[in-house]
Simulated assay, not measured.
Amino acid sequence: MKTIHSTQNSFVKQLKKLHKKKYRDQMSQFLIEGPHLFAEALSAGQVMPYLLVEEDKLQTFQPPKDSEVIICSEDVIRTLSQTESPQGIIAVCHILKPPMTDILQSNCSLALLDDIQDPGNLGTLIRTAEVLGMTAVVLGKHCADMYNSKAVRATQGALFHLPVIRDDLNGLVNKLAQANVPIFATAMDGLPLEKVQIERKYAVVFGNEGRGIDEHLLSAANERISIPMAGKTESLNVTVAAGIVMYGLQAKKNG
Rank of each mutant, 00 (worst) to 15 (best):
144 A>E: 08
58 L>P: 08
11 F>H: 13
229 M>C: 03
6 S>T: 10
39 A>L: 06
135 T>A: 10
222 N>L: 04
34 G>K: 00
13 K>M: 13
218 L>P: 00
220 A>H: 01
92 V>R: 00
237 N>H: 02
202 Y>D: 01
215 E>V: 11
82 Q>E: 15
247 Y>S: 12
222 N>W: 00
63 P>E: 10
158 A>Y: 09
50 Y>C: 06
228 P>S: 07
102 D>Q: 14
31 L>F: 02
183 I>H: 06
240 V>A: 14
219 S>V: 04
224 R>C: 11
83 T>R: 11
159 L>F: 15
250 Q>P: 00
81 S>D: 01
162 L>M: 11
145 D>M: 08
34 G>Y: 05
217 L>A: 00
148 N>K: 13
228 P>M: 09
214 D>L: 01
12 V>Y: 02
71 I>A: 09
132 L>Q: 10
189 D>E: 15
143 C>Y: 12
61 F>W: 06
253 K>P: 01
198 I>G: 07
186 T>Q: 06
16 K>D: 14
96 L>H: 07
52 L>Y: 07
77 I>Q: 02
237 N>C: 03
197 Q>D: 14
96 L>N: 12
159 L>W: 05
145 D>S: 09
63 P>G: 10
101 T>W: 00
225 I>Q: 01
130 E>F: 10
33 E>W: 05
204 V>W: 00
82 Q>W: 00
44 A>K: 03
165 I>M: 07
79 T>C: 13
205 V>M: 07
218 L>R: 10
191 L>C: 13
119 P>H: 00
219 S>Q: 13
241 A>L: 04
135 T>C: 10
99 P>D: 09
14 Q>H: 13
45 G>M: 07
193 L>N: 02
191 L>Q: 14
199 E>K: 15
84 E>A: 13
88 G>H: 01
175 K>S: 12
7 T>H: 05
12 V>T: 12
181 V>T: 14
54 E>I: 09
147 Y>T: 10
30 F>S: 11
42 L>G: 00
80 L>T: 05
154 A>N: 12
70 I>A: 01
171 G>K: 08
44 A>I: 09
252 K>A: 09
241 A>W: 04
36 H>V: 10
151 A>E: 02
206 F>A: 07
187 A>H: 15
228 P>C: 08
147 Y>A: 05
193 L>G: 01
27 M>D: 15
88 G>W: 04
237 N>L: 06
